[in-house]
């Protein structure tokens, strides 16, 4: 077997090995890259920035542990921004797995970095409710029909920031994080569009292309994968330099992602070279057979 044939039939595990190294080595060397916010990300930042103090932000944690590395950096950056702007944050989950992730984010970001924020006044955890898009359908007209208590069992009317909430139209912006089902698309179709409430989203890089058609009319902005998170973190640091010292996993992970992309590009180039060599060889052989005839 020739060198090119060997390369053409390379075991996929060799590719896996290279990708593994392409991610691990930059992580170990703390290789990171700077980012500039693209218009689709900047639009979300500008929207949050434009909201007056006390505005109501509904944040839906529509993801699970599998996509934490991609989605959590977005959540962290958005929570910091909302807290800094003194907006009221309503956290809920359409995914069962989102419940724990709300608790973690509350502890890690709000309680730890903004200890003066008061639960029930500045932020609330409404927890997980089953129902997927059906839940959105219901809360579009009546929030308290589904949420009779918050996640820890407090009567909903005893939560001060819930008093003037009637339905989805009571919110100034909806942020849905997670590109799966139910997720950003369902919020746009069943919440944002019929309720005329602006919806912004964050999704994994794999599912982000599906959401582009909704931008900019139905979706005011989109954070796509690690790059989207990194861009939002950059915008936040640019607007509020004090956040430079905070963790920014999105920016940190852009290094490994860059190297992994380059390795994939190199493999595609190698694949094409072997393909052309094999095709030329095949052509030559066919030509020779033609002469013999």
């Amino acid at each position: 077997m020739s060198f090119f044939e060997t390369i053409a039939n390379i075991d996929r595990r060799v590719i896996f090995l290279f990708i593994g190294f392409a991610v691990i080595i930059p992580v170990l060397l703390s290789f990171s890259c700077t980012e500039e916010a693209s218009p689709i990300v900047q639009a979300i930042f500008d929207k949050i920035e434009s909201l007056p103090e006390g505005s109501k932000v509904l944040m839906s944690f529509d993801y699970g542990p599998s996509t934490v590395p991609e989605i959590q950096p977005m959540i962290d950056a958005l929570l910091r921004h909302c807290c800094e702007k003194n907006l009221r944050i309503y956290m809920m989950a359409l995914w069962g797995t989102g419940h724990n992730l709300i608790s973690e984010s509350m502890v890690d970001i709000i309680e730890h970095e903004f200890p003066h924020k008061v639960y029930g006044v500045d932020y609330v955890n409404l927890g997980y409710k089953a129902g997927n898009q059906g839940l959105i359908n219901v809360i579009l007209t009546d929030m308290k029909k589904m949420y009779t208590t918050d996640a820890v069992g407090t009567e909903i009317d005893a939560v001060p920031m819930m008093v003037d909430i009637r339905n989805l139209k009571s919110f100034d912006v909806i942020l849905s994080l997670g590109g799966g089902f139910p997720g950003v698309k369902e919020w746009v179709l069943f919440g944002g569009d019929p309720g005329n409430v602006p919806v912004a989203g964050g999704a994994t890089a794999v599912s982000a292309p599906l959401l582009y058609p909704y931008y900019p009319r139905q979706l005011l902005g989109l954070l796509g994968g690690i790059k989207g998170a990194a861009e939002y973190e950059s915008a936040l640091i640019k607007g509020y330099p004090k956040f430079k010292t905070h963790s920014h996993p999105g920016i940190d992970m852009m290094g490994p992602q860059t190297v992994a992309h380059i390795v994939i590009v190199i493999f595609i180039v190698i694949g094409n070279i072997t393909f052309f060599v094999a095709r030329r060889k095949e052509g030559d052989e066919r030509g020779e057979r033609g002469i013999l005839k």
Binding site: R12, I15, F16, V23, I268, G271, F275
Partner: peptide, 14 residues
Amino acid sequence: AFFVASASYRAFRA
């Protein structure tokens, strides 16, 4: 990520 790499290697041929 690994499967994207192997699928790209196989699928993206001119």
